[in-house]
Protein backbone atom coordinates (compact mmCIF):
# COMPACT_ATOMS: atom_id res chain seq x y z
CA UNK A 1 0.00 0.00 0.00
CA UNK A 2 1.27 3.45 -0.85
CA UNK A 3 2.08 5.90 1.93
CA UNK A 4 0.98 8.88 -0.14
CA UNK A 5 -1.70 8.75 -2.76
CA UNK A 6 -2.72 11.88 -4.62
CA UNK A 7 -5.19 11.29 -7.42
CA UNK A 8 -6.37 13.81 -9.98
CA UNK A 9 -5.46 16.76 -7.78
CA UNK A 10 -6.75 20.15 -8.89
CA UNK A 11 -5.88 23.46 -7.32
CA UNK A 12 -6.60 27.02 -8.45
CA UNK A 13 -5.74 30.41 -7.08
CA UNK A 14 -8.56 32.55 -8.45
CA UNK A 15 -8.66 31.73 -12.15
CA UNK A 16 -5.05 30.55 -12.16
CA UNK A 17 -5.31 26.76 -12.50
CA UNK A 18 -2.03 25.87 -10.85
CA UNK A 19 -2.59 22.12 -10.60
CA UNK A 20 -4.72 20.80 -13.42
CA UNK A 21 -4.80 17.06 -12.90
CA UNK A 22 -1.90 15.58 -11.01
CA UNK A 23 -1.64 12.09 -9.61
CA UNK A 24 1.21 10.82 -7.51
CA UNK A 25 1.66 7.60 -5.57
CA UNK A 26 4.61 7.06 -3.29
CA UNK A 27 5.35 3.66 -1.81
CA UNK A 28 7.30 2.87 1.31
CA UNK A 29 11.03 3.31 0.85
CA UNK A 30 10.64 5.11 -2.46
CA UNK A 31 12.42 8.33 -3.36
CA UNK A 32 10.50 10.44 -5.86
CA UNK A 33 11.95 13.63 -7.28
CA UNK A 34 9.95 16.38 -8.87
CA UNK A 35 11.60 18.63 -11.41
CA UNK A 36 10.26 21.32 -13.68
CA UNK A 37 10.36 25.00 -14.50
CA UNK A 38 9.59 27.56 -11.84
CA UNK A 39 5.92 28.44 -11.58
CA UNK A 40 4.91 24.97 -12.78
CA UNK A 41 3.14 24.07 -9.54
CA UNK A 42 5.76 21.96 -7.74
CA UNK A 43 5.56 23.84 -4.43
CA UNK A 44 1.80 24.00 -4.62
CA UNK A 45 1.68 20.21 -5.03
CA UNK A 46 3.83 19.73 -1.90
CA UNK A 47 1.78 22.31 -0.01
CA UNK A 48 -1.41 20.44 -0.91
CA UNK A 49 0.18 17.18 0.20
CA UNK A 50 1.27 18.71 3.52
CA UNK A 51 -2.11 20.34 4.17
CA UNK A 52 -0.80 23.89 3.89
CA UNK A 53 -3.16 24.40 0.96
CA UNK A 54 -6.56 22.85 0.36
CA UNK A 55 -7.24 21.04 -2.89
CA UNK A 56 -10.18 21.92 -5.14
CA UNK A 57 -10.56 18.53 -6.73
CA UNK A 58 -9.24 14.97 -6.60
CA UNK A 59 -8.42 12.88 -3.58
CA UNK A 60 -5.60 12.78 -1.05
CA UNK A 61 -4.85 9.69 1.02
CA UNK A 62 -2.19 8.75 3.54
CA UNK A 63 -1.57 5.07 4.28
CA UNK A 64 -4.82 4.31 2.47
CA UNK A 65 -6.88 6.59 4.71
CA UNK A 66 -8.66 9.39 2.83
CA UNK A 67 -7.84 12.89 4.03
CA UNK A 68 -10.45 14.35 1.70
CA UNK A 69 -13.65 13.20 0.13
CA UNK A 70 -15.97 14.76 -2.42
CA UNK A 71 -19.51 15.49 -1.18
CA UNK A 72 -22.77 15.24 -3.15
CA UNK A 73 -22.38 18.73 -4.62
CA UNK A 74 -18.84 18.00 -5.82
CA UNK A 75 -17.09 20.00 -3.10
CA UNK A 76 -13.95 18.74 -1.40
CA UNK A 77 -14.40 18.08 2.31
CA UNK A 78 -11.44 17.53 4.63
CA UNK A 79 -11.38 15.14 7.57
CA UNK A 80 -11.94 16.87 10.90
CA UNK A 81 -8.85 15.59 12.66
CA UNK A 82 -6.00 16.61 10.37
CA UNK A 83 -3.30 16.28 13.01
CA UNK A 84 -3.48 12.48 12.75
CA UNK A 85 -2.20 12.92 9.17
CA UNK A 86 0.38 15.53 10.10
CA UNK A 87 2.04 12.81 12.20
CA UNK A 88 2.58 10.82 9.00
CA UNK A 89 4.57 13.38 7.04
CA UNK A 90 7.30 15.95 7.51
CA UNK A 91 8.22 18.93 5.35
CA UNK A 92 11.58 20.58 4.83
CA UNK A 93 11.21 24.12 3.55
CA UNK A 94 13.40 26.00 1.11
CA UNK A 95 14.15 28.66 3.73
CA UNK A 96 14.26 26.27 6.72
CA UNK A 97 11.66 28.04 8.90
CA UNK A 98 13.57 27.12 12.03
CA UNK A 99 12.32 28.77 15.20
CA UNK A 100 14.89 31.52 15.81
CA UNK A 101 14.18 31.86 19.55
CA UNK A 102 14.87 28.18 20.21
CA UNK A 103 18.30 26.59 20.42
CA UNK A 104 19.12 23.82 17.96
CA UNK A 105 18.18 21.19 20.53
CA UNK A 106 14.90 22.91 21.44
CA UNK A 107 14.01 23.28 17.77
CA UNK A 108 14.31 19.53 17.48
CA UNK A 109 12.65 18.39 20.73
CA UNK A 110 9.88 20.97 21.11
CA UNK A 111 7.38 19.27 18.80
CA UNK A 112 8.13 15.71 19.98
CA UNK A 113 7.55 16.88 23.57
CA UNK A 114 4.58 19.17 23.02
CA UNK A 115 2.85 17.49 20.10
CA UNK A 116 3.77 13.81 20.44
CA UNK A 117 3.90 14.13 24.25
CA UNK A 118 7.20 12.32 24.51
CA UNK A 119 9.16 12.72 27.72
CA UNK A 120 11.87 15.34 27.54
CA UNK A 121 14.58 12.78 28.30
CA UNK A 122 13.45 10.51 25.49
CA UNK A 123 13.17 13.41 23.04
CA UNK A 124 16.63 14.71 23.93
CA UNK A 125 18.19 11.29 23.55
CA UNK A 126 16.68 10.85 20.10
CA UNK A 127 17.52 14.41 19.08
CA UNK A 128 21.17 14.06 20.04
CA UNK A 129 21.46 10.82 18.08
CA UNK A 130 19.90 12.42 14.99
CA UNK A 131 22.03 15.56 15.28
CA UNK A 132 25.12 13.40 15.50
CA UNK A 133 24.07 11.44 12.46
CA UNK A 134 23.62 14.67 10.49
CA UNK A 135 27.05 15.95 11.47
CA UNK A 136 25.71 18.46 13.98
CA UNK A 137 27.24 17.07 17.13
CA UNK A 138 28.13 19.81 19.59
CA UNK A 139 25.83 22.36 17.96
CA UNK A 140 22.82 21.62 20.16
CA UNK A 141 23.11 24.75 22.29
CA UNK A 142 23.65 27.13 19.40
CA UNK A 143 20.90 29.30 17.91
CA UNK A 144 19.86 29.22 14.25
CA UNK A 145 21.31 32.71 13.67
CA UNK A 146 24.76 31.38 14.63
CA UNK A 147 24.71 28.62 12.00
CA UNK A 148 25.50 28.59 8.31
CA UNK A 149 22.60 28.03 5.92
CA UNK A 150 23.76 24.49 5.30
CA UNK A 151 23.72 23.71 9.01
CA UNK A 152 20.34 25.39 9.46
CA UNK A 153 18.89 23.22 6.73
CA UNK A 154 20.37 20.11 8.32
CA UNK A 155 18.83 21.12 11.65
CA UNK A 156 15.48 21.54 9.94
CA UNK A 157 15.85 18.06 8.46
CA UNK A 158 16.60 16.72 11.95
CA UNK A 159 13.58 18.61 13.30
CA UNK A 160 11.38 16.88 10.73
CA UNK A 161 12.97 13.46 11.36
CA UNK A 162 12.48 13.77 15.12
CA UNK A 163 8.74 13.48 14.51
CA UNK A 164 9.46 10.04 13.05
CA UNK A 165 7.45 10.62 9.85
CA UNK A 166 6.58 7.88 7.36
CA UNK A 167 7.32 10.23 4.50
CA UNK A 168 9.40 13.37 4.18
CA UNK A 169 8.82 16.16 1.66
CA UNK A 170 11.54 18.55 0.55
CA UNK A 171 10.78 21.76 -1.32
CA UNK A 172 13.99 22.87 -3.01
CA UNK A 173 16.05 22.21 0.13
CA UNK A 174 19.23 23.73 -1.32
CA UNK A 175 17.86 26.64 -3.34
CA UNK A 176 18.37 29.18 -0.54
CA UNK A 177 21.96 28.07 0.05
CA UNK A 178 25.27 29.36 -1.23
CA UNK A 179 26.56 26.91 -3.86
CA UNK A 180 29.38 25.70 -1.63
CA UNK A 181 26.86 24.67 1.06
CA UNK A 182 24.50 22.62 -1.08
CA UNK A 183 26.76 19.56 -1.00
CA UNK A 184 26.50 18.97 2.74
CA UNK A 185 22.70 19.10 2.61
CA UNK A 186 22.43 16.83 -0.44
CA UNK A 187 24.76 14.43 1.32
CA UNK A 188 22.46 14.00 4.31
CA UNK A 189 19.45 13.55 2.05
CA UNK A 190 21.38 10.89 0.15
CA UNK A 191 22.15 9.26 3.48
CA UNK A 192 18.42 9.18 4.26
CA UNK A 193 17.74 7.62 0.87
CA UNK A 194 20.29 4.92 1.66
CA UNK A 195 18.43 4.32 4.95
CA UNK A 196 15.27 3.72 2.87
CA UNK A 197 13.48 6.85 4.06
CA UNK A 198 10.43 7.54 1.92
CA UNK A 199 10.89 10.94 0.31
CA UNK A 200 9.45 13.36 -2.21
CA UNK A 201 12.02 15.92 -3.28
CA UNK A 202 11.44 19.02 -5.38
CA UNK A 203 14.84 20.00 -6.70
CA UNK A 204 16.80 21.73 -9.41
CA UNK A 205 19.87 19.60 -8.67
CA UNK A 206 19.57 17.25 -11.62
CA UNK A 207 22.66 15.17 -10.93
CA UNK A 208 21.45 14.65 -7.38
CA UNK A 209 17.92 13.75 -8.50
CA UNK A 210 19.36 11.25 -10.94
CA UNK A 211 21.53 9.68 -8.25
CA UNK A 212 18.99 9.31 -5.42
CA UNK A 213 15.62 8.87 -7.08
CA UNK A 214 13.69 5.76 -7.85
CA UNK A 215 11.30 7.82 -9.93
CA UNK A 216 11.25 11.32 -11.35
CA UNK A 217 8.30 13.49 -12.34
CA UNK A 218 8.67 16.39 -14.71
CA UNK A 219 5.90 18.87 -13.90
CA UNK A 220 5.05 21.88 -16.03
CA UNK A 221 1.97 24.10 -16.13
CA UNK A 222 0.15 22.04 -13.54
CA UNK A 223 0.53 18.69 -15.28
CA UNK A 224 2.88 15.74 -15.06
CA UNK A 225 4.47 15.99 -18.48
CA UNK A 226 6.72 12.96 -18.14
CA UNK A 227 7.43 10.39 -15.47
CA UNK A 228 9.90 7.55 -15.18
CA UNK A 229 13.07 6.16 -13.70
CA UNK A 230 16.10 8.47 -13.82
CA UNK A 231 17.44 6.45 -16.73
CA UNK A 232 14.20 6.78 -18.66
CA UNK A 233 13.79 10.47 -18.00
CA UNK A 234 17.35 11.65 -18.49
CA UNK A 235 18.81 9.25 -21.02
CA UNK A 236 15.73 8.36 -23.00
CA UNK A 237 13.67 11.55 -22.82
CA UNK A 238 10.40 11.19 -24.71
CA UNK A 239 8.70 14.55 -24.41
CA UNK A 240 9.93 17.67 -26.21
CA UNK A 241 9.17 19.96 -23.31
CA UNK A 242 11.16 17.73 -20.98
CA UNK A 243 14.03 17.69 -23.46
CA UNK A 244 14.00 21.44 -23.68
CA UNK A 245 13.94 21.82 -19.91
CA UNK A 246 16.80 19.37 -19.42
CA UNK A 247 18.91 21.18 -22.01
CA UNK A 248 19.39 23.93 -19.45
CA UNK A 249 21.25 21.45 -17.31
CA UNK A 250 24.29 20.05 -19.02
CA UNK A 251 26.11 18.38 -16.16
CA UNK A 252 23.79 15.44 -15.56
Amino acid sequence: MSILSMSNIKKSFGDNNVLKDISLEVNKGEVVSIIGPSGGGKSTLLRCATLLETIDGGCLKYNGIPVTHTNESGKIVYEKNLNQFRKIFGLVFQNFNLFPHFSVLKNVIDAPVNVLKKTKEEAIEEALALLKKMGLEGKENMYPCDLSGGMQQRVSIVRALAMNPDILFFDEPTSALDPELTGEVLKVIKQLADDKMTMVIVTHEMAFAKAVSDRILFIDKGLVVEEGTPAELFDDTKNDRTKQFLMNYNNI
Binding site: L51, K87, N97, F99, P100, A111, R159
Partner: peptide, 24 residues
Protein backbone atom coordinates in the same frame (compact mmCIF):
# COMPACT_ATOMS: atom_id res chain seq x y z
CA UNK B 1 6.85 30.47 7.38
CA UNK B 2 6.90 30.36 11.19
CA UNK B 3 3.20 29.46 11.25
CA UNK B 4 3.67 26.94 8.45
CA UNK B 5 6.68 25.34 10.11
CA UNK B 6 4.69 24.90 13.31
CA UNK B 7 1.51 23.72 11.58
CA UNK B 8 3.32 21.00 9.66
CA UNK B 9 4.86 19.77 12.92
CA UNK B 10 1.34 19.40 14.31
CA UNK B 11 1.26 22.30 16.78
CA UNK B 12 -2.26 23.46 17.61
CA UNK B 13 -3.24 27.07 16.89
CA UNK B 14 -2.77 28.01 20.55
CA UNK B 15 0.59 26.22 20.79
CA UNK B 16 1.77 27.94 17.63
CA UNK B 17 0.81 31.33 18.97
CA UNK B 18 2.12 31.01 22.51
CA UNK B 19 5.20 28.86 21.87
CA UNK B 20 6.39 30.13 18.49
CA UNK B 21 4.87 33.49 17.58
CA UNK B 22 4.43 35.42 20.84
CA UNK B 23 8.02 35.07 22.13
CA UNK B 24 9.30 36.51 18.86
Amino acid sequence: GQYEGATVLGYSKAQTFFRIILPQ
